[in-house]
Design a protein around this nucleic acid. Sequence first.
RNA 1: GGCCCGUUAGUCUAGCGGUUGAGGACGCCGCCCUCUCAAGGCGGAGAUCACGGGUUCGAAUCCCGUACGGGCUACCA
Length: 504
Amino acid sequence: MPCTRTQAEPNEESHDMDQVRVRFAPSPTGHLHIGGARTAIYNWAFARRHGGDFILRIDDTDPERSTDENTQAILRAMEWLGLDWDEGPGAGGDFGPYFQTQRSELYAQGLVTLQANDAVYPCFCTADELKGRREAAREAGGFAGYDRRCRAIDTEEAAARIARGDEHVWRLAVPLERDDVTFVDAIRGETAFPIGSLDDFILVRSDGTPTYNFATVVDDVAMEISHVVRGDDHLSNTPRQILVFEALGGEVPTFAHLSMIWGADGKRLSKRHGATSVEAYRDLGYLPEAILNYLTLLGWSLDDKTTMIDRDTLVENFSFERVSKNPAVFDTDKLEWMNGVYIREMPVEEFADRMSALLTAQGMLTGAEAEERREWLLKLAPLVSERIKRMDEIPSMVGFFFSDTVEFDDKARKKVLDKAGAGCAMDAVEAVLKGLDTFETESIEAALRDVPEALDLKPRIVFQAVRVALSGSMVSPPLFESIDLLGKEKTLQRLRQARSSATD
RNA sequence: GGCCCGUUAGUCUAGCGGUUGAGGACGCCGCCCUCUCAAGGCGGAGAUCACGGGUUCGAAUCCCGUACGGGCUACCA
């Protein structure tokens, strides 16, 4: 006899995979958050994997904090990450509008449906009363949700009070006789909530606007969402929402709850942890490919080895089965390393373009110069790309090529220019370079290699002195290449200039 | 308080009952390369698989409990 399966397995097949429709529904009360971005990536990847639709819906029901500027920023960040949506702002679609503030009619209709189904009742309790009773209940131990007092008011009286203009909200009448609410989460497996632990929560506020748990379900039904993929801060909301789905007569989608992303201190990622928005990382010089790669693998794995993964491989392989259940700490060090890998892999032409754009934006180069010096920039590009982890490191690394004067940092002056032999080294190097006819990396190197021995100095002493003379710093791109790129005239001039403040 | 979720090295993870004296990656340490810094190569330290019971010939893997962390319990989302 085959063994009996006692517990349901996480199962993505409970809905027809040909009709996958998922949505990412950010609230435009801020920019696209790192955690939100990961949720968006998983939604997107799942839709693409199954040839489904990826819908972007803007949950702008909080009028106080929602702004159009935030909405635009979120759209920009999504595009920057390469997460294209099939329906939503700018994309259209048959299930719009895609802003919740434009869907109030749907919510009103939803309420009518629930009223017709006897699934809701008006509640006239005031916030103060509720607070008092809630606290008392909690102190007594046990259930501390709404005590369902207004559920006892008969329909006629309720209607009279409403007609009279009494302020009221609409609450869901939780079917007390129902079995426990269970569902198979695609990531966590079977999850059960005792029906008695669910209170008659508010669906419609006294001002007539829907609460999150109501609006979301109305929209998910109307938009025919097949899979709800979201953060696990919504796991406890799920049984409530399932009740609303049922009351509405809608089909309950499959749920997949992602764990949270934490800061290094094990607390929920927030402003205190530094940059938390996707655009902030963009401005810090991170590449979209790196962010996508890092976030993809922060909570999902392809196998036991893969750390570098591209968009296509993600789409070909994504599944909820391999999404991890536990929270993940956002590790900036690893992201930075990964960004460096992508920078190094970038074709030189592309890197040169991005570098030009950056330098132009910084005012170190004009657009015209960038074009004229294209060849020169192409030579510089690989020297820089190999040494940085973030694009924003570029200006400080190559600044000395573009300035007229060299600023020596204190450490370089003390540890190099003031060292015995530095002056002689510069004299000798100047003399050798002055006599060079072909001023190219190879010839420069060939000529300078002999200098240390001739002066009976260590190579390090000689070359560091030159480096500081040219760049002002103890760290720079490779010396011979830098001399080549700087050009003969500037090189000689800087050597002479540095010579005056050096020790013999 | 109640309900729910989670727990493999500092971090992200692999592992879905025996081939694991727990694999990979970041970070860390050392060596090599070397004009600096990187990059690269090689090597190393680091995990009593939260803890305690059980099931089993055998458990990181299944079950129960405890601890710790998190979420929900709002006329926020």
